[in-house]
Design a protein around this nucleic acid. Structure first.
Lengths: 348, 348
DNA sequence: AATAATCATTAAATCGATTTAATGCTATTT
DNA sequence: AAATAGCATTAAATCGATTTAATGATTATT
């Protein structure tokens, strides 16, 4: 049987059933691998299978989802898909999801609680099977409600202390503590920490790691919190002011890749020499830090491991119907990339 | 065997109808703004509206899509979501789409024809209302088939000469021609062009612009085409070999941001001085080029305009049922960011 | 031979909406 | 008084699948 190259109307299960003079129930059973269980004759199974392959029939997944309640779609909510950290993670999660028969619907929350709330509602409405979320502050109730309704949820990059669910993150506190200690051991004494103002766990932990290191070493902290904005000028402005005000600084620690990138721009514009005027370290590693001259030390997050863990945990939740497994938290190690080995001590 | 304790069953239109002692048809008419048209009594409308608001009923969109054939979802296929160019475009398209009541399902094609084919089939299956695609080579028939079946399709970043459909791209040929001319006017004579091996329109046009400029100036072209790979080592290897082989080069033009970034890494590893040993220009602009020292001149694509155009064209197609409008191609201008103003002539 | 059990298949209900065609009522026209 | 038109609402069909319960035909058991 020759098929028209472009058939306008998609075939339905009824068309298949009619053409083969078999009931659609039988077709459905066969296509869902229940032929044996339903003791459907071998030749019938073959005949149906052959025809289905031939015409390339694929069940309408909307109808399927409506009936079964499953969509095979995972909702992924990152902070900002144009941030290289989240873009890379999204890419990896997408790959792993596709390999396991799931598709991804994604969106950026902008750390905006209301926007996130709407997006969750949208995902819910679309009957996504599971949620992967880098949650903004204030979204606790909505996430709790999801979980209460039995939806599989995995948080990443940060977590919500008041919500008991699975999450994947890195050892933020130790990472900044360790990197700060490194600076201190190299002889730097006036180390500033510049970050976005945020109460999110990962941001607080990173800040705490810095504080702990300074505290332990009897040094004075210099902390600058900047209000996040889409407009880079509004980030660079306060940064500029801060750096000009504190001439005594000999090192700066940036709390995220975005702060770090803006920081580099400001440092360039001020004509500061790295590391003679100022030593630098940033959280998150990417090409900008590798290619800056001299290259900037950075705390590299294990993005592959993060993506893998997130997907593994979620698939696990999706496949085991049991709701009674206690939630697990996975804390991954970071990799401190030390670059530009000039020690302060050497210069002194 | 224990059921979730507080599993709240979502309300359906039947529940609403029963509770108000009205038929579901009436509810549906009212909620779809057809009350007036159907002359439904004002008090009834108010009563229904009030109750619906009160209980927060939202129609099941799967059922709605199944019946109407519309999903309010746009499928977005980029080459690689972790590439900053595509990530930024995706982010902007997402914003514009949400503002117009559409959601985005996205995926990365990797420029892999078979993967793209599967993804198109997946989107189709999910009944997306429209397609935004940065198409790989060899996908002509699949796209044509989509269009023939009446699906709105907008291509971007490149187009398929054998497929007549709407597309948004930039003036690639002029952009490289212009930037190359700039190098020539500054006195550079041995200018190489390094790109990914590809027959895609944008890549061919960029290459042609370079060739035209050199041809016009009577200079000899040096072209290096690299096979794309996820593994950066496999890009940097050939690049390294090429640069070491052609010691006479005084300038290099990178055809994409990715080639450019890898190029910078190789140049750093070879210890070459920019621009004394080698002047650089790259297609696509981003932080890496701005922050490299000295900063690298780059051809900035107007990503906001691209995203806006893409969405505008697509929404236009979605709203006008008429299939007879001839397809439009939008060609946008780029912005050549000249950095590090040292002229070759000065040094000579 | 009547009953039960097994087999292979299918009719009909269902998911939750939209939409077409029909209903019963009142008011107006012939 | 019968026919027509207008009004307000709804029953039933539909989208395309899955799933439950039923069917008729054999075969085995009592």
């Amino acid at each position: 049987m020759t098929l028209p190259k472009y058939h306008v109307k998609k075939l339905s299960i009824v068309d298949i059933a009619n053409h083969l003079n078999v009931s659609k129930t039988t077709i459905s059973f066969i296509l869902n691998g229940r032929a044996q269980e339903k003791r459907i004759g071998k030749e019938l199974v073959d005949r149906v299978q052959k025809f289905v392959d031939e015409v390339g029939y694929k069940p309408n997944s909307l109808a399927k989802s409506l009936r079964t309640g499953k969509s095979n779609i995972i909702g992924l909510m990152v902070e900002d898909i144009s941030n290289p950290f989240f873009a890379s993670i999204a890419r990896l999660i997408e790959d792993r999801a596709y390999k396991n028969g799931y598709k991804i619907i994604y969106c950026s929350t902008d750390n905006d609680t209301n926007k996130t709330r709407e997006l969750i509602s949208m995902f819910r409405d679309r009957h996504v099977d599971g949620y992967i979320i880098a949650p903004p502050e204030g979204i606790e109730d909505d996430i709790s409600s999801l979980i209460k309704d039995g939806m599989p949820v995995v948080l990443f990059d940060r977590h919500l202390p008041k919500v008991s669910t699975d999450f994947v993150e890195i050892d933020n506190l130790f990472s900044t503590y360790n990197a700060t200690m490194h600076l201190i051991q190299q002889g730097y004494k006036n180390i500033a920490y510049i970050t976005f103002a945020s109460n999110q766990t990962q941001m607080q932990d990173r800040l705490q790691g810095y504080k702990d290191a300074l505290d332990e070493s009897g040094l004075k902290p210099f902390i600058q919190e900047i209000v996040f904005s889409q407009n880079e000028e509004l980030i660079m402005g306060p940064l500029n002011t801060f750096l000009k005000k504190h001439k005594n600084l000999d090192a700066v620690f940036f709390g995220t890749n975005h702060v770090g990138t803006c920081g580099l721009k400001v440092i360039n514009s001020l004509g500061l020499k790295v590391p003679d005027d100022l030593a630098l370290v940033s959280f998150d590693d990417y090409d900008v830090f590798k290619l800056f001259s001299p290259p900037v030390s950075a705390i590299a997050q294990p993005i592959e491991a993060i993506a893998d863990s997130v997907i593994t945990v979620l698939l696990n939740k999706l496949n085991t119907s049991s709701q009674h497994i206690s939630s697990q938290s996975i804390i991954l190690k970071t990799d401190f990339q030390i670059r530009g080995s000039s020690k302060k001590a050497d210069k002194a």
